Simulated scan of single mutants.
Amino acid sequence: MAKRKAVVSLQDCVACGCCMKICPRNAISIPKGICAEIDSELCVGCGKCAKECPASIITLEVME
């Protein structure tokens, strides 16, 4: 089974924090309040952040 990871569209993120609040692994942070960053070591690709994002700018990508 392929491993998935969440990816944020950096130019479109408004740092609302919805994704950060829903992440069960605390893999998302918003350094300096600019945009969300996802720690790929902590992310398990569950997709909760992508579903919660009001701007729909988080996607899940298949990692090799």
Rank of each mutant, 00 (worst) to 15 (best):
I34T: 14
M20D: 07
K51P: 00
G45P: 07
L10V: 15
C43T: 05
D39F: 09
S56T: 04
V7E: 15
A6S: 07
K51E: 09
E41W: 07
S56G: 11
I30L: 03
K32Y: 15
R4N: 08
K21F: 08
C35M: 10
C19N: 03
G33K: 07
A6I: 01
C43V: 05
E52G: 09
S29K: 15
P31M: 09
M1L: 14
C13Y: 12
C23I: 01
E64P: 15
S9F: 13
L42K: 15
A6Q: 06
I28P: 02
C13L: 12
D39K: 02
I28M: 01
K32N: 14
K48C: 06
A50M: 08
C46P: 01
I22C: 00
P31I: 06
C18P: 00
I57L: 03
I38S: 08
K32C: 11
M63Y: 14
V7Y: 12
C18L: 02
E64S: 14
K21Q: 08
A15Q: 04
S40G: 11
G33E: 06
G17D: 00
S29T: 15
E61S: 09
A50H: 02
E61H: 09
A15F: 12
P54R: 04
E52N: 03
C35Y: 15
A55H: 11
V7R: 13
G17Y: 00
K21R: 14
V8L: 04
V7M: 08
I57M: 03
V8E: 06
C16Y: 03
G45L: 08
D39Q: 11
V44G: 03
C23N: 03
N26Q: 14
C13E: 12
A50N: 05
D12G: 05
V44N: 07
V62T: 15
N26S: 13
M1W: 11
C49E: 00
C18K: 09
S9Q: 13
E37T: 09
T59H: 03
V62Q: 14
C46A: 05
A36F: 04
M63T: 15
L60R: 10
I57K: 00
G47T: 12
D39P: 05
A36Y: 04
A36E: 01
E61M: 12
A6Y: 10
C16V: 05
M20Y: 03
I58A: 11
E41C: 05
G33M: 07
A6L: 10
E52V: 01
D39R: 04
C16F: 02
M1A: 14
V62A: 12
A6G: 13
V62K: 15
I22K: 00
P31K: 09
L10F: 13
C18T: 02
L10A: 14
T59R: 08
I34Y: 10
V44Y: 02
I34G: 09
S40I: 11
P24K: 05
P24C: 11
A27C: 14
S29E: 10
G33F: 08
A36W: 01
C18E: 05
G45K: 02
P54F: 06
K32P: 04
P24D: 01
A36L: 09
R4C: 02
L10H: 15
G33D: 03
A2F: 11
I58R: 03
A36M: 10
R25T: 06
A2H: 09
A55P: 05
C35E: 09
E41S: 14
A15K: 08
V14D: 12
E41I: 13
I34N: 13
C49K: 02
C46D: 08
V8N: 03
A55D: 15
